[in-house]
Write a protein that binds this DNA or RNA. Structure first.
Lengths: 160, 160
DNA sequence: TTGGGTGCAAAGGCTTTGCATGTGA
DNA sequence: TCACATGCAAAGCCTTTGCACCCAA
């Protein structure tokens, strides 16, 4: 999406930051793999294909920057890596209510789903606990279609 | 709760594991601070008061064990530490639907709340995406009562 | 020109692991 | 007794930082 890239360049300029080839490459890498939830290392490997000289430290610095600019979202699956993805909602929409994640406990794949059924809950909390909710994160753990089918198959074959 | 401790000892024995003073101490430390979401280091400091010779490695090994035995829950607030707390639901209840967390973005305090408004959502996902949900994790980020009041006060004083 | 950006390597910080010693059953 | 558990220190691993060089503006 060149739109997104133009927006990125503008955001950088507006913040007095420079538009460098590395920054563009990293954004492109993330854009080319939507819903992929890449780790810093994966982004690094991906970017190196086109920019072999890039350093891992630059990747870390840039994703931190992108996250601060709300251009990408951080995601922690609890596996020791911090992951990143292009912001689904975009900076123009209400960024506080976005998508959530379905994490397969077997293969580790991550699906996303839209939907915001938490507003009622948040309102209740706001009233009951006087806690002002500004963001939320929902992770659902389970088994994806593929793994379920494989498991059923295995079950039929081995009976365990 | 001596009940919990008895249960713990039984669980250990049933799994062919030994009941050691270190393991008991660590469980006690976690029990004495419900809703506190301690890091390994904090547990270590806490246990050292009564067992000065304990090693940090033992704490790590034990909390890992306790988590595997479902006696404690892991919690990741995204601040670089893994935290642990005594399982609220206990092993006798339905352990898949427990409590959730309210994390203050200002002071870092963590409140918990019960309630499970996600069942409808999970059912919908189960049907639509053929993803079998077995557990979920909900984190709400915002500002606790104390910080809100402090913020309002500051606002009134400094006008910013 | 020039101050922010980058690459490389070293350092940080949390967690795990190897190994000899200790200890519950 | 003896296999499991512990303590200590070293190693692992992801991430950040220091510093000299580079380059977008």
């Amino acid at each position: 999406m060149p739109d997104n890239q133009e927006r990125f360049k503008n955001v950088l300029k507006q913040n007095g930051l420079k538009v460098t080839t590395q920054r563009i490459s990293i954004l492109e890498a993330l854009e080319s793999r939507p819903d992929k939830h890449l780790t810093a290392e994966e982004i690094y490997e991906c970017v190196k294909e086109n920019s072999p000289d890039i350093g891992l430290a630059t990747v870390y610095r840039t994703i931190q920057l992108l996250a601060e600019l709300n251009l990408i979202d951080k995601l922690n699956l609890g596996d020791g890596y911090v992951r990143y993805e292009i912001g689904h909602s975009g900076a123009n929409e209400d960024s506080t209510h976005h998508h959530h994640h379905l994490i397969c406990l077997n293969c580790g794949s991550v699906l996303t789903f839209q939907g915001d059924l938490l507003e009622a809950l948040e309102e209740r909390i706001q009233n009951a606990l006087e806690f002002e909710v500004v963001d939320h994160e929902v992770k659902l753990f389970g088994y994806c279609k593929e793994c379920r089918e494989a498991r059923i198959e295995k079950h039929n074959n081995t009976n365990c």
